[in-house]
Amino acid sequence: MRLIKQFGIILAVTFIGELLHYIIPLPIPASIYGLVLMLIALKSRLIPLHKVKDAGSFLLEIMPMMFIPATVGLMVSWNSLRSILFPVLIITFITTIVVMAVTGCITQLIIRLEKRNSK
């Protein structure tokens, strides 16, 4: 029963993200709205972590299975992708490096700000 309540909370936040996506005319995916809302709710302690922790852990454990449909889709469209494979690999490599660098810089900035605020 506890897991059902936790999934309900996660689904409610996701639904609110979907509503925001429908209302706000920005090219931002609804899932991003939901993630930002969940982050705000957790950081502000509107939703205590223990209210969603078990369901979140379960979702993280089954995440690899969620990539199976995308992988099958790539296998099905392999003939179309073969001609552009090299550019796709280069773009993927470059964007991965950029995302890692930006994430690292933002994380360091947040850590510095938290240390400065705690003093």
Results as ranks from 00 to 15, higher is better:
Leu42Phe: 01
Thr103Gly: 14
Ser31Arg: 08
Ile16Pro: 04
Phe58Lys: 00
Val13Trp: 02
Leu46Gly: 08
Asp54Tyr: 07
Arg82Ser: 15
Leu37Tyr: 00
Ile97Pro: 03
Val52Tyr: 00
Phe7Tyr: 11
Gly34Val: 04
Phe58Gln: 01
Val72Phe: 09
Gln108Asn: 15
Ser80Pro: 01
Val13Asp: 02
Leu74His: 03
Ser118Pro: 09
Glu61Phe: 12
Tyr33Cys: 02
Arg82Glu: 15
Arg116Ile: 13
Ser83Glu: 13
Val99Gly: 02
Phe7Leu: 14
Glu114Ile: 12
Ile111Trp: 01
Ile94Met: 08
Ile62His: 02
Gln6Asp: 06
Ile9Ser: 04
Ile84Thr: 09
Lys43Ser: 10
Met1Asp: 13
Gly34Ala: 10
Ile24Glu: 07
Pro69Leu: 04
Ala70Asn: 12
Ile32Leu: 13
Ser57Arg: 07
Ile91Ala: 15
Phe7Asp: 04
Ser57Gly: 10
Ser77Asp: 14
Met100Leu: 15
Pro25His: 04
Ser31Lys: 11
Ile62Cys: 03
Ile84Gly: 05
Ile24Asp: 07
Lys53Trp: 06
Met1Gln: 14
Val88Ser: 11
Lys115Met: 07
Leu60Arg: 04
Leu11Pro: 09
Leu35Arg: 02
Phe67Ile: 09
Lys53Asn: 09
Ser31Gly: 13
Leu3Gly: 07
Pro64Glu: 00
Gly56Met: 08
Val52Pro: 00
Trp78Cys: 10
